[in-house]
Design a protein around this nucleic acid. Sequence first.
DNA 1: AACTGGCACTCGAAACCGCGGAGTGCCAGG
DNA 2: CCTGGCACTCCGCGGTTTCGAGTGCCAGTT
Lengths: 338, 338
Amino acid sequence: MLSERRLEVLRAIVQDYVGTEEPVGSKALTERHHLGVSPATVRNDMAVLEDEGYIAQPHTSAGRIPTDKGYRLFVDKMAGVKPLSAAERRAIQNFLEGAVDLDDVVARTVRLLAQLTRQVAVVQYPSLTRSSVRHVELLSLAPARLMLVLITDTGRVEQRLIDCPAPVTETVLADLRARLNARVVGRRFADVPPLVQDLPESFEADDRPAVAAVLSTLLETLVERPEERIMLGGAANLTRFNHDFPLTIRPVLEALEEQMVLLKLLGEATDSAMTVRIGHENFHEGLNSTSVVAVGYGSGDEAVAKLGVVGPTRMDYPGTMGAVRAVARYVGQILAES
Amino acid sequence: MLSERRLEVLRAIVQDYVGTEEPVGSKALTERHHLGVSPATVRNDMAVLEDEGYIAQPHTSAGRIPTDKGYRLFVDKMAGVKPLSAAERRAIQNFLEGAVDLDDVVARTVRLLAQLTRQVAVVQYPSLTRSSVRHVELLSLAPARLMLVLITDTGRVEQRLIDCPAPVTETVLADLRARLNARVVGRRFADVPPLVQDLPESFEADDRPAVAAVLSTLLETLVERPEERIMLGGAANLTRFNHDFPLTIRPVLEALEEQMVLLKLLGEATDSAMTVRIGHENFHEGLNSTSVVAVGYGSGDEAVAKLGVVGPTRMDYPGTMGAVRAVARYVGQILAES
DNA sequence: AACTGGCACTCGAAACCGCGGAGTGCCAGG
DNA sequence: CCTGGCACTCCGCGGTTTCGAGTGCCAGTT
């Protein structure tokens, strides 16, 4: 176990390094923080911290920088979540309230997060699988061609084209529309399948194939396509750090273009606890010197999607966590209102 | 006027520079291209080309690189549009045909363009203002709360919430829905306003405010919100060039995050001719060493939106133009089919 | 035992230097 | 009008030097 002062030294190192982006030495430490001990003592502490793997030297006789393990200890034991200022909160609220539809909410959220944290922001669209049906609409575009429009309680709209095996009359369509809505409105997506299974049987034999086609498309949309959409922004912030590396920015940009990677980045945890993944804790090569701060958000009590930021491991964790949490809350509010 | 051979020299310089990314000298030129003259002669030609402003030296006694003006002459007079190989065409077709909805079409198009050109791809969603109405749907979410869903012939779907001043009965709603569709389906957006102006008058006085609310939201969606959405991809390609400059990648990334800038980049020309804007021809600072190749695409004869790529001025213009044009065509086809 | 001042040592970053070579401009001759 | 030759320029590269921040260790103090 590390003594109290050693922890204090680690904290000081993290803070200084985050600020200056340069390895921090014993002398600078004692000057900028009043630790009440001499540089020599700090050096001894540093040697211990290094043995334990919390800090490292880029090369002999340079200052120390925190390791992933060091950052981990920092966020677990020492870093609070810095709340935002009142002004910031108001700005968030105002900015998000101007949104006209779901796309706009997500777009604004991304911008907001990127600006607030000065890092790359990632926002997942409210997931289909965790939300519920507000309305199902069926439109006839041509005699044997329908469009299915699905509206969720989070304001998301999905549409699908359906080619029917046979023409469908308006009356049948209206009938189907009414029954469908009666059964599924208000239901969670996952609960829908059993509720509509027997629907075709209540129609004339001639119409059953068409009804079946509609249902299969509906179920496909609801369940079988967990393809989640994601929006990201603030990529320009990648250039703020990384003075040394087009070398390191490259794989990050590549990773950020992969929807799958982004989804995994945000994590699959369904509860709304904030997760911080640091450096090598990220499974993905090329994200080994980045950290991800993510949290769920939702219109109600439960999270329907996640959002977060990815930045260099040397980030201001308390500040970033504060911003992420605050934005998630406000987005949740906005979604609940619409 | 430049002699035939001087043009040939310019072409050779452009091609070599695009390939090697290094200033090209007279000797290398005569070796790689059989110009039939000696290096000394080429040097004289180069001197002339430099006087005319088509090429420049990074510093005395270095090779030459093309200026923006040089590239301009190159694409105007010398560069054809390199057609894609049959294999590439097939790949495009296959890839785009897998799309399930408009979002997916756009997403796939962006990927495709980025991969094909190895540059940053920009695709504008089919514009609202230039497309026509396929269907208007009205849903009642609560007694005095409606949702308007608008489906365009390009498959785009817009939805809006409407708060009505008074509750609306289902019959009135059905009536309104039917009349609305009868009047506007198949119409271009711009033509809609006069067609619905007198609609409120045909309803009971009690319902007119609600009808008016619906109409105003509809018109707002059709006309007053020319906010276009844009998707981009392939940002990682920015790192392929620019070995020298995180300095130059920064402003580009920033510019690419501004929807407005992107829209202007694609240009406002409504016809489907391809535009190439080179270096300083771009109004925007920070895009001064990038070129933009853009072209309109559409489901029919007329362009409903644009797409293109942005890359370094030293790009393979014929190849890029070929890819952009081909992708635009196939996307047009796909949209027409859906 | 814990802390401190002192000291020799290490090693990267920056400055400096010299050189090779690609490329140029110019000129005189075909 | 083209060409070979020639002197010149300057960048890029590798090696050396210097400088200084920072370290580890030790002996001395509290």
